[in-house]
Design a protein around this nucleic acid. Structure first.
Lengths: 254, 254
DNA sequence: AACATTCATTGGTCCAACCAATTTTGTCAA
DNA sequence: TTGACAAAATTGGTTGGACCAATGAATGTT
């Protein structure tokens, strides 16, 4: 089964890093289909014009990501991306300078109930001093004398803080991955271009705080619903200008 | 910052695989703390009694897993596991022949609402023929003339089928990771030891089917709630015999 | 036709040398 | 003393080649 796609020799960064990225993207956008076998290491190395050792390191990274399975004497076989890690969400959404709005919509659809349930637990189990930490983050977000990026970053950290309040290590993992996803350079750029004031979320946060302070977890959850709906709409608004093919050019230069 | 833990030379399987596993476990159970630096490659290679090339491949796998960050001239630094991929959930729960019931409880707490929301979407968006596929899986689960493992496997595939019904690629990723987690050998063994009949879940499934067939999505969701509660309790019952330290010996021989 | 053997293919490991980025150290001048 | 700058040591990155080991297909035998 010959592989027809062309690869360019690495020019920047670490060689195995570049190779791994090219192969990863080829897998994610289907040029290398699941079940298909990668060319032999020796041949791939020659095509990339790198040493076999470097190419092997790239393969190992892909193996760690769960994108390929390697068997001695057989070769490297591409696995379905659906089996792969959540770390691939960002590369799946942002590929080749464009935003795959389909995956973005899908991710939003998953993150929304996730955020809601996590916050429910957080409200239930939080310690008072943790509430204070979030309040400090809120103040950073509301402080329009600061850099926009710093205020956005504080907003992302709220998610992480919430996860810590659940005292659940798995929620903590998910929240940090979500934060990292939101912090992906292409998404950061896209949001910056939308020219929104980071402080817009402050009223939502305050409404949650007020309800919690008043000892009304139900009201807090209701406010939370509104907040999460707002965030969800924000993400989906990136879809507005999408082309008919379900993909749009990213606003960043990457 | 000297590293004190001892490493044994690899004896089985592929060398870099064994090395990666030892290092991964050392990170997951805290012998290598986040922020700490790994010893230089040359020194580590000597300690493991392997070539530096093999050790480097292991490092690359850890890099792919998001457990370490490597910088030329500096070294490899351990990252917080909370930042790492969900693929690590199984190694986190099952370590050194024991079940970490804390992480297990945490994972269950996350998977439960996840499953519920995903099923809600699945009921909303499914195609009739997909319902038939699940019915076939149901028949396999109910067929006590088959191997127990085959029936358990069918149960796990239901989750994947549900995710396909959502027509959402991210749900599909999460479902497949969850299935893989449930299929982890230690968890499979533990459940087998519990000596439960895989067919116990059939009434729950049927109740969902009946409600969907009757065109009552609310009733289907109610039945689903009961089902998910049952599954959740099943997972948590593994915690019953746990020791005070929050960990119990795994029932399997690994 | 079924089975066992052989052999080419392909990944796995090792070695040794050198390149490149970073950090540390040392020196000298202000 | 302090700061800046340069040299050296440390550490990961890359290369080339050689050989080992598992797989699978071709071949031959029964």
């Amino acid at each position: 089964m010959p592989i027809s796609c062309v690869f360019k020799p690495p020019v920047r960064r670490r060689v195995h890093e570049e190779i791994a990225e090219q192969l990863r993207d080829a897998i994610l956008d289907g040029r290398l289909a699941p079940g298909q076998k990668l060319p032999p290491e020796r041949e791939l190395a020659e095509r990339f014009q790198v040493n076999r050792t470097s190419l092997r390191q790239a393969i190992k990274v892909l193996e760690g990501l769960g994108l390929v399975v390697v068997r001695q004497g057989d070769g490297a076989t591409v696995l379905p991306p659906a089996e792969a890690s959540l770390d691939l969400l960002a590369p799946m959404i942002f590929r080749a300078g464009t935003i795959d709005t389909e995956v973005l919509v899908h991710a939003t659809e998953v993150i929304k109930p996730l955020l809601l349930e996590m916050s429910r637990l957080a409200i239930e189990r939080h310690e008072p001093e943790q509430l204070e930490e979030i309040r400090r983050l809120r103040d950073v977000i509301a402080d329009d004398s600061r850099q926009r990026e710093e205020r956005f970053a504080a907003g992302r950290e709220v998610i992480v803080m919430l996860s810590d309040m659940t005292r659940n290590r798995v929620w903590q993992m998910l929240a940090r991955q979500t934060r990292n996803l939101l912090a992906s350079p292409p998404l950061r750029e896209a949001r910056r271009e939308m020219d929104r004031d980071p402080g817009q979320v402050v009223p939502y946060i305050d409404r949650c705080f007020d309800a919690i302070a008043a000892g009304q977890p139900e009201a807090a959850l209701a406010a939370l619903h509104q907040f999460v709906d707002y965030l969800s709409d924000l993400a989906l608004s990136l879809d507005e200008t999408s082309s008919g093919r379900g993909r749009m050019r990213a606003l960043s230069g990457t």
